[in-house]
Design a protein around this nucleic acid. Structure first.
Length: 106
DNA sequence: CGGTTGACCAAGT
DNA sequence: GACTTGGCCAACC
């Protein structure tokens, strides 16, 4: 079970995100114990689990929605349905809907 | 093993 | 506030 690639581990963290919340690429990387922000984004970009994994709940650290393999419009649309306010390409009340991972024993 | 890429980040201009 | 630069790390060729 631990033989998964870094990419697969990212998906595992994604699935832990509760509905109506969002996180950042950086947070996920740190949750995995690394600083590979880019590797995380790279993993989600090619993610074959698009509907399985809530990749649309992942945004950039500056509050922007970031990107989406199926189109940002779809991503924003999903976020709004989850109860997250999105203005243009940015998250409204970003820190309100922000979800933090438990790095250590939680 | 080296070079390229990417849904990034932070700091500087 | 928008753009540029350097850095970071994993996956792929």
């Amino acid at each position: 079970m631990n033989n998964k690639s870094f990419t697969e581990l990212c998906y595992s963290q994604l699935k832990k995100i509760p509905r109506g919340k969002v996180t950042t690429y950086k947070a996920i990387a740190q949750a995995l114990g690394t600083n590979a922000y880019r590797a995380v984004g790279n993993a989600l970009n090619k993610n074959p689990y698009t509907p399985k994994v809530p990749c649309h709940r992942v945004v950039k650290s500056n509050g922007e929605v970031g990107g989406y393999a199926q189109g940002m419009k779809k991503k924003i649309n999903l976020l709004k349905k989850e109860g997250i306010s999105v203005t243009g390409n940015k998250i409204d009340s970003f820190n309100e809907n922000f979800f933090e991972y438990c790095k250590k024993s939680c």
